[in-house]
Design a protein around this nucleic acid. Sequence first.
DNA 1: GTCTATAACCGGATAGAC
DNA 2: GTCTATCCGGTTATAGAC
Lengths: 237, 237
Amino acid sequence: MGLRIDNGIRSVVDMNSTENDETTAVDPPDTRERILIEASRLLAVNGYHGTTTREIAAAVGISQPSLFFHFPTKRAIAEELYKHDLLPAVAGLERLVEADASPAAKLYAMICGEITRIVNSPYDMRAHISYEVLNDPDLALFQDLVNQFDDLTHSLIRSGQESGEFAEGDSWLAQQMVSALLARANLFATTDHLKRHSHPDEAATLILRSLLAEPDALEGVRRDAMVLLPLYDERSV
Amino acid sequence: MGLRIDNGIRSVVDMNSTENDETTAVDPPDTRERILIEASRLLAVNGYHGTTTREIAAAVGISQPSLFFHFPTKRAIAEELYKHDLLPAVAGLERLVEADASPAAKLYAMICGEITRIVNSPYDMRAHISYEVLNDPDLALFQDLVNQFDDLTHSLIRSGQESGEFAEGDSWLAQQMVSALLARANLFATTDHLKRHSHPDEAATLILRSLLAEPDALEGVRRDAMVLLPLYDERSV
DNA sequence: GTCTATAACCGGATAGAC
DNA sequence: GTCTATCCGGTTATAGAC
């Protein structure tokens, strides 16, 4: 079958594809896709209420009403962006949780996979988990998705503590630290510090060192996580 | 003096005063103070652009134009809140940095002191470091303050790495983890999980375990930090 | 698919009475 | 200090031509 180009920006699929077929060479983003890209930048910087449809249209280079040919409402633009970010994350973490491996390896793989995904995303998702968005009753779907992700992370930490692989401690606080670091990773991705200087592994190492009961176990965890990592990526399942 | 119950909110003035005269016993929040409290909640949830002066006024129980008797603009309300949050943080961290102690103890004391301060604040400061606010050119003052805080944290981590007290690693990433956790602490404070179940020490422990080259050094670091802690609090200098 | 013109609304802020 | 009434600029979204 081969990878289809989904007409857009180098879709996520393309960026990560291990082999390219010759048809993917050109790949000019259509208007709809350019709207999503520019909107993601503006939403990240100015927030949902701080971003106007005029600004998005100007960034794309079309008139403000032309936006409404491609999307029914401003909200629909934001929804598509948030879904693009959150659905693969929840699905990937669910696959990891069900896998046969230690909680530490699963957590390590999740952090690596998630940061890799964020860095490779064509969109700027810094704002995806702003309180402003999560508390908007009209965007309740995303509260659910974020809560699902957080709950899965929390249960991973709990079961690691129960098996003795992780040190005892407030599992809720630990989960918040993981989720805070991942939210921050969206910022790394655009300041491009992460792209140039840092590795997903470093973030995972930082978290695991703080959780593991036995620091020397880290190398083994890393090896197990590398085997698990493809599971997190929807293309490889 | 004795502990007064603060009916609701302890006013900022009271919290920081080293000595109380007897006239402060009752402490009914005046309108101006109530505006700040309600505005902090709404700003935290809906963001700056997502919060209207009409909503703030309704929460306080006055008419919308009455706000403008107490504050010249909507922005002035936000500015006062952000200053209240950021000025003591930067000043406290500066005092810690200049103190005579190990970087690890200073970092531990900062995290403890900062979370304690957040939990005790009468305001809900969840939104204080949203990109929406930090990127607003009219609020550039706060970018400076946040950058100062982050730079001081970063230099603390760097010098700990240079002395061998901390493990090698990306100091920028480590600083981001600290700052992300503290930003999240503003959320803890209102979900009141932190107030009930968690201790500032747990957060500091979580971070230090991930940074220390020698995990067994943690107990000594904690003891040194406890001596340092009063330095962070402006009331005790 | 994109445009111009515009409807309908909501935002911050002011005027002036009490 | 607080109110009612109001101004005015900016915002989302629609209508209809090309």
